[in-house]
């Protein structure tokens, strides 16, 4: 069985900074990590590999600085990784990204299961996983927190608004994985040695994969960012209720009820 896990490298959540001038996320010079939901997807793949004979291939699209995350994925237990990296991909939104990744997955070939995170922590669209399934015409199960392989079918537990559902599909299929549904394992010594020995990452350009340059990049991305607003928190009133404890708590409660912060 071949499992392909799509990951993205994102700025570390705790280190997020917004450029005060452009109002966009700073991506250069901040520490990065594997997009956390993607790390959860990788953990599901590695758990499946613990139970079944499987090869786990990690795929990403981006600059070569993404090697850091691909190396980490291999150190955690993935077998190998592919980075689609090409200047002409710069500025691609979710539409060209889903197209380019699906082309790359076809070039890797022989896949039985594709896993992605539910969304990225730096853009939060949730488009790319379903987009890949669309391009490859695969059955998909979104927002899953557990995947089992039973009799050559995929069974996944899906988080719905009012509970959980178990879905079953034939292979190949695609699942998008919930953020925080598991605890991604740490890199192993054996894994880190494999990374050091080299040869665990291949870089492909658009030409290598056969991606149509007219379908990728900023110009071929339909999303237009019209405006970015920063949320401004209302100033705090800063009222202090003092004096007798019972009375001041009563006064505080009355004020909160009056301001509709709590129900009477």
């Amino acid at each position: 069985m071949r499992i392909i896990v799509c990951i993205k490298q994102v700025p570390k959540a705790q280190e997020l900074q917004v450029d005060p001038v452009t109002q966009t996320l700073k991506r250069v010079g901040v520490p990065s990590e594997i997009n956390p939901p993607d790390a959860n997807a990788l953990e599901i793949a590695l758990t499946l590999k613990d139970r079944h004979p499987a090869e786990v291939v990690v795929l990403s699209m981006g600059p070569t600085s993404f090697d850091e995350s691909l190396e980490r994925a291999v150190a955690m237990g993935a077998d190998r990784s592919v980075l689609l990296t090409d200047r002409i991909l710069g500025g691609s939104d979710t539409v060209p990204t889903a197209y380019a990744l699906s082309e790359t997955i076809q070039k890797i070939g022989g896949y039985d299961l594709i896993l992605t995170g539910e969304e990225t922590t730096d853009a939060s669209t949730g488009h790319v996983g379903p987009g890949i399934a669309g391009h490859l015409d695969l059955p998909q199960i979104t927002y899953v927190s557990e995947v089992r392989i039973v009799d050559n079918t995929v069974r996944a537990r899906r988080t719905a608004e009012d509970g959980t559902e178990w879905w079953q599909t034939n292979m190949p299929s695609l699942c998008t994985v919930n953020f925080g549904c598991n605890k991604p394992r740490s890199p192993t010594l054996t894994g880190k040695i494999r990374v050091k020995r080299g040869g665990v990452i291949v870089h492909w350009s658009c030409a290598d994969v056969g991606i149509d340059p007219k379908k990728v990049g900023l110009l071929n991305s339909p999303t237009i960012v019209a405006k970015v607003d920063t949320i401004r928190l209302p100033p705090r009133a800063g009222r202090i209720f003092s004096g007798d404890a019972k009375e001041s708590v009563r006064a505080l409660l009355d004020a909160l009820i009056r301001d509709r912060v709590v129900a009477p």
């Binding site: 890199p187 192993t188 010594l189 880190k192 050091k196 020995r197």
Partner: peptide, 25 residues
């Protein structure tokens, strides 16, 4: 030499008292 960082080794792999390597897990 191959340097690997970020790994804490807290056990040895031993056979009959002879150290055969390290064991992280």
């Amino acid at each position: 030499a191959t340097l690997v960082t970020g790994i804490r080794v807290d056990d040895l792999w031993k056979e009959d008292g002879h150290v055969r390597g390290v064991m992280v897990a």
